[in-house]
Design a protein around this nucleic acid. Structure first.
Lengths: 353, 353
DNA sequence: CGATATTTTGGAAACGATACCAATCTTGCG
DNA sequence: CGCAAGATTGGTATCGTTTCCAAAATATCG
């Protein structure tokens, strides 16, 4: 603690080299240094060299905070995410960060723990930090606080598989859940399933809502029965919902898990209840999970490219930042079947109208 | 593009309310507004009320960029991570971000794609952005470029399971891999295994290095044979290394996978080669993975609390930022055995010296 | 060669806050 | 009541850039 070298504590390190010092060393004005470094056209070669020499000699690096203040742009975007430890979101974040960085932007990441209040709070904080734009994977699409925070922020926004009707510069990237869910349901129907359940996320979130609607629509078209259990994207909900499904008078013969968290819950309850997949119940999950290929049986999944989704979200934001009009883009989902989908075993199978 | 409402494009929105405007509205000096808002002691009640009223009326929110410039602190930290889509890192990031935010800090996240060059580049960028500190989960511990960048940055740093000998304000959070690996190896030995392989990450990274050293040490103590296959933390390395292990004259009877990526590769190769776990080979992995409990058999794992690691990393950084001396903290690892560990089947098992 | 036109450059004023200092206003007390 | 001590307040410089404007230097041309 107490330094033995006197006169050292006085100097607060070498501080940092400012543009002013570069200017002094080069014997020119600060404004000229700025011009050289920002590639202004009217700069003589001699000036450029003097400045660049001084920059190199001093190891000068511009202060991005000062730059941000003066230019009114921070080259920073905020990403509000429910929980970065969700593999879905962390892949999106990876794609987005990589793409943004290549365009010179940095990314502030905040976790809202799936709480709408935190969403709103974080949006306000990011606005104060003067981010140039927002990437939002919100906990709720219709929380008034969040809506208010978004519209007040007056920033370019890209929604990640979320829908909000708000005026402003708002683009969105959607996953086309319809195709994947429809393919999955039709495949189940082909195997004779006539009661299909969806253990779903909260219906105020686009992915869950669209999946539920699609299941209901396709089931109606096929004349079969659908059951939707809405809840949160958690293992707990997966377990509880599955338990209640299995307790039904006529339990579903196939279950679609609405997320990998939910899948874990579903699997736990199925194991507990000694139900075998696919003999007792067929199983499909949304968004593939790393080790799924080694499960016995491997779980069929409705998949999409999360990384790509992040990249698209980032490019939509870059578009907005360059002044283009907002728009939405959609990425496909595909159904990859597997041995977790099997034929219905006729046990106490009553024919339903 | 061409707006039909004339006179709209002129106003660049309501701009933003500055402290000056608040001061004007309250009929006081800007410095007084600053004092009120920063909780300066000497402020009369009447002044406080006038200012707060004006603040509320105008909806003023301070500009954190300007504040950063003037105060010389951005209340921002940078987190350099190999790849946020790695569940290990995303959990750490979650823990760190949450803890930092509660202390008023925001987190800039950058992915280095496990490239040391990018590590260094990102550190420089973050320094230019004037972050107050760094959280580093580096791609390499001895890349000169990275070392240089870190020491030039002159910032408080916390290393996340990485070792670097560098002067400066550098703390670290370590996982105590020794205990977990030792427990795992002893358990294997109890089951009669006398040739144990570790499909490992790169040995210039602490986790891989410590695990390898521990395996070697314990194997020597027990008088058994160890094989370490160093490489990258990828499925490809997992596959290739496993293939080469299985091709040995006397293949190992137990394999430890050095990461979840590696585990996937190991499993793929074992499946391809029709080796059964644990009958043909016992299997243990490092860092549990979500669905592991549903694998047949479930995979034994050496575990640690990643989230907690992130929290600790954050608090070490907060310590440094408050002026405390650097230090290291260690979190435990535990070995959780399971059916993937079994007795050695005496086939062509020669007794080794 | 002188007078415009065009580059090139330096100086000063921002960006939006904070913090120091000095001026003013209260108080307390002899 | 007068004055020193303390509480409050306003004004100004500053953080490190960029950008506007005008001055200086150079180029162009009849």
């Amino acid at each position: 603690m107490a330094s033995s070298s006197p006169g050292f504590a006085k100097r607060p390190s070498v501080s940092r080299i400012s543009m002013q010092e570069v200017a002094q060393r080069a014997g020119v004005a600060a404004s000229s240094v700025s011009r050289v470094l920002s590639g202004h056209p009217n700069v003589s070669d001699i000036m450029r060299n003097r400045v660049l020499d001084a920059v190199a000699a001093l190891g000068y690096e511009p202060d991005l905070v000062a730059q941000s203040l003066r230019r009114g742009a921070t080259m920073t975007v905020g990403f509000v995410v429910g929980n970065i430890s969700n593999p879905l979101l962390s892949e999106i974040a990876l794609g987005a960060e990589t793409h943004l960085r290549e365009a010179g932007y940095s990314m502030l990441l905040v976790n809202s723990m799936n709480k709408p209040d935190l969403d709103a709070e974080h949006i306000r904080l990011l606005a104060q930090r003067r981010v140039d734009g927002l990437l939002l994977s919100l906990a709720s699409e219709d929380s008034p606080g969040t809506l208010d925070a978004v519209s007040r922020a007056e920033l370019p926004v890209v929604l990640v598989d979320r829908e909000m009707t708000l005026r402003g510069s708002i683009s969105a990237v959607y996953a086309e859940h319809e195709t994947g869910v429809e393919a999955a349901v039709r495949e189940l129907a082909l195997h004779g399933h006539r009661r299909i359940a969806l253990v779903n996320g909260p219906s105020d979130l686009r992915p869950a809502r669209v999946r539920a609607n699609t299941l209901r629509r396709v089931a109606r078209q096929l004349g079969i029965t659908s059951v939707v259990r809405s809840g949160s994207f958690t293992t707990e909900h997966g377990e509880a919902a599955t338990e209640s499904l299995l307790a039904m008078a006529e339990p579903p013969t196939a279950i679609v898990a609405g997320s990998n968290q939910i899948l874990v819950g579903v699997l736990r309850e199925l194991r507990r209840a000694h139900r075998r997949v696919p003999d007792d119940v067929s199983l499909i999950t949304c968004d593939e999970v790393p080790l799924a290929e080694f499960l016995e049986p491997p779980i069929a999944a409705i998949e999409r490219d999360h990384h790509e989704m992040g990249v698209i979200a980032a490019s939509l934001l870059l578009e907005l930042l360059s002044g283009t009009a907002p728009r939405t883009r959609t990425i496909p989902t595909t159904f990859k079947t597997s041995a977790s989908v099997g034929p219905v075993k006729d046990k106490n199978e009553y024919r339903k109208v």
